[in-house]
Design a protein around this nucleic acid. Structure first.
Lengths: 216, 216
DNA sequence: ATTTAAACCGACTATCAAGTCGGTTTATTT
DNA sequence: AAATAAACCGACTTGATAGTCGGTTTAAAT
């Protein structure tokens, strides 16, 4: 096999297995040897390809986590239809993978935020970057929804974005142990309820000020 | 000093400092020596009073975390007024302590859930117990709100409870790094918006089925 | 004052994990 | 076939930390 190909293949295998184990057991609770044992590789191979465990992890963030966040939580809502529907089905799908205990990258992200917060500034910087991208993307989706008439124009786009991310991250935390499927269902129907309240009010324009923007 | 008093005092000091450090740096990232150094005590003192680090932590959960959860997130909403207002001001206050980087026990809880999930079943059992108590309390608050006419009777109490806990835990995760104060403000105003949508609809009873209960 | 035990000290052990490095294998180049 | 370098091996070093234990201090009881 071509040497560069072999290099890429080995690094890829290490990163995939690394992310799996880091997700399952946490970064600090997963030793490099754990990953290597899984792959029947040695310390030498690892430190030949990566500078350090931390460096390894950052490459995982950049190569796997960022891409997956894009494909699961960012690109799916970049269409130009009703953005609230897009977000709904996007969350629906992401939470479904969570129910089946598969890797759900929105959660992986929030998990790592929890684990590294206050402990590793360098890694936090990378994680925060992803959060910011997610947030910015949600904000522009909401704004698009307003522009297209699916969302009331008085709605605070940034507020909704923060609220959505909060709710998503939170429900994933709650789903880890107790009744994930039931919690997903309940969560989703409350999300729909909340989205209903963001729709444009056409019937009575006098109510707008009281319903929205308690901006004091 | 009385010996039993001294014993209690020392154990209390250890637990308070322990919780502080466990919260700040995480359980696995805080050594027993870290705590002891903070208190100018020795290993001997620690293992004289506690069986193990794990046992120590469980006592912290039972003695400090549970009590604080009660006083911050459970008892404040046990009044008999408008429960949505009670929950709002309760969250408002809890998040305000979070803004000032003080110990916010709802977050401490979710932090630990993240840290121990899949790693320590025994500790998780204790943490899940608290989550369940919180949830049960929220559910009965919502039901009380329905009974008192502050919340529409078609609302799914369990759904709202899960949604509230999710949102709270999530926003706390988001508040750890980026713009906590702004995020708190945005979160709270969206929460109020969501609560608005739970209020009884008196004007048009025909709309009920379409607004609520997409229970398919 | 003496006894007794609770409370505490801190050196020590055992274990685990990150990272190093000299050596070996494998595949490509000449 | 020989030379070369990338890829990999695994024993070893270093540092951290949970838990142990024999000894010392402190304060209550007699």
């Amino acid at each position: 096999m071509d040497k560069t190909l072999k290099r890429m293949a080995t690094m890829q295998r290490m990163q995939v297995t690394g992310l799996e184990l880091f997700y399952k057991n946490g970064y600090y609770n997963t030793s490099v040897d754990d990953i290597l044992k899984e792959l029947s590789l040695s310390k030498g191979a690892f430190y030949y390809h990566f500078e350090s465990k931390e460096d390894f992890f950052i490459q995982i963030i950049e190569n796997l986590l960022v891409r997956k966040m894009y494909s699961m939580l960012i690109e799916p809502i970049e269409g130009h239809e009703n953005t609230l529907d897009l977000i709904t089905s996007c969350f629906e799908e992401a939470l479904e993978t969570a129910v089946h205990n598969e890797l759900d990258f929105g959660f992986v992200l929030s998990n790592f935020v929890n684990e590294f917060n206050g402990k590793n500034e360098r890694i936090m910087k990378h994680l925060n970057d992803i959060l910011r991208i997610w947030e910015a993307n949600l904000v522009s989706a909401i704004q698009r929804g307003k522009f297209n008439g699916y969302i009331d124009r008085h709605v605070d786009s940034e507020g909704v974005a923060v609220y959505l991310m909060s709710a998503y991250i939170g429900v994933r935390t709650l789903m880890v142990e107790i009744a994930p499927s039931a919690r997903k269902y309940r969560f989703m129907s409350q999300l729909r309820q909340y989205f209903k309240s963001l729709e444009p009010k056409r019937d009575n324009s006098l109510n707008h000020q009281t319903v929205y923007g308690s901006a004091n």
